[in-house]
């Protein structure tokens, strides 16, 4: 399944590549609201750029909470990184050109 690379997915992909493995972690690193970060994670996983795995049951129980789900880059995800970087660069250039243009937040 193909995926249209947007700033959001690019940001999230890069965050996971940088080692931020948990949903909330990614959300905080990218400064995205949880309602935006999670759908992006789901899309990336569905497109095969990320895969997820569950924390060890015993470990979670030891710290008295449900298991956490962590995300890793797949080979395809790693291959898509340059595209993501390029997307972000484009946006950066665009913003630079507009000087004080609007923020990154809106996904169109």
């Amino acid at each position: 399944m193909s995926l249209r690379m947007t700033q959001i997915t690019a940001l999230v992909l890069r965050a996971v590549a940088a080692g931020h493995r948990y949903g909330f972690d990614v959300m905080e690193t990218c400064a995205l609201p949880s309602g935006t970060a999670y759908p992006a994670l789901r899309r990336l996983e569905k497109a095969g750029l990320l895969r997820s795995s569950w924390e060890d049951e015993d470990e979670a129980r030891a710290s008295g909470r449900p298991r956490r789900r962590s995300y890793q880059l797949t080979a395809r995800g790693r291959a898509a990184l340059p595209e993501a970087e390029q997307k972000l660069e484009e946006v950066r250039r665009l913003l630079g050109a507009m000087d004080h243009g609007p923020g990154l937040e809106t996904e169109r």
Partner: peptide, 17 residues
């Protein structure tokens, strides 16, 4: 629930569910 519990998140994080 795991994320909320692990990070001590509140409604600000949880609404995104």
């Amino acid at each position: 629930l795991g994320e909320l519990r692990a990070t001590g998140g509140d409604m600000r994080q949880a609404w995104g569910a």
